[in-house]
Simulated assay, not measured.
Amino acid sequence: MALVAYGTTASPASSAARDVGPLLRSWRERRRISQLELALRADSSARHISFVETGRSRPSEEMVLRLAEHLEVPVRERNALLVAAGYAPRFRQTPMDDPALGPLREGLDRLIRGYEPYPALVVDATYDVVSANRGVTMLLEGVPERLLAPPLNAMRLTLHPEGLARRIRNLREWRGHLLAQMERQLALHRSAALRELYEEVAAYPVPRGGAREAARAPVEVPYFALPMRIEHDGRVLSFVSSISTFNSPMDVTVAELAIETFLPADPATVEYLHSSWAGEHREAGRE
Rank of each mutant, 00 (worst) to 15 (best):
V4Q: 15
A5W: 14
A5N: 15
T9L: 09
P12W: 05
S15F: 09
A17H: 07
V20N: 07
R25C: 08
S26M: 14
E29A: 10
R30A: 10
R31C: 06
I33D: 04
L38K: 10
L40E: 13
L40Q: 13
S45K: 02
A46D: 02
A46E: 14
I49Q: 05
F51V: 02
L65M: 07
A68W: 11
P74I: 10
N79E: 02
L81W: 03
V83M: 09
A84C: 05
F91P: 05
F91K: 00
T94Y: 07
P95I: 01
A100W: 05
G102L: 13
R105E: 04
L111G: 05
Y115E: 15
P117N: 02
P117D: 03
D124L: 08
D124N: 13
D128S: 08
V130H: 02
S131H: 07
N133W: 01
R134A: 14
M138S: 10
L139P: 01
R146W: 11
R146M: 01
A149R: 15
P150W: 12
N153V: 08
R156W: 02
T158F: 04
H160T: 12
P161W: 02
P161F: 04
G163A: 09
I168G: 11
R169K: 13
L171Y: 10
L171R: 04
R172D: 10
G176L: 06
H177V: 14
H177F: 15
E183I: 10
R184N: 06
A187N: 12
L188H: 07
R190L: 06
A192M: 04
R195G: 04
E196A: 11
E196S: 11
E196G: 04
E199C: 02
E199G: 02
E200Y: 00
V201Y: 06
A202N: 12
P205D: 03
A217G: 00
E220F: 05
E220D: 13
V221S: 09
P222Q: 08
F224A: 15
L226W: 04
P227V: 14
H232W: 12
H232F: 12
D233I: 03
D233N: 14
R235N: 10
E256Y: 00
E260Y: 01
L263V: 10
Y272T: 06
S276P: 00
W277D: 15
A278W: 13
G279D: 15
E280A: 15
E283I: 07
A284P: 06
A284R: 13
E287F: 01
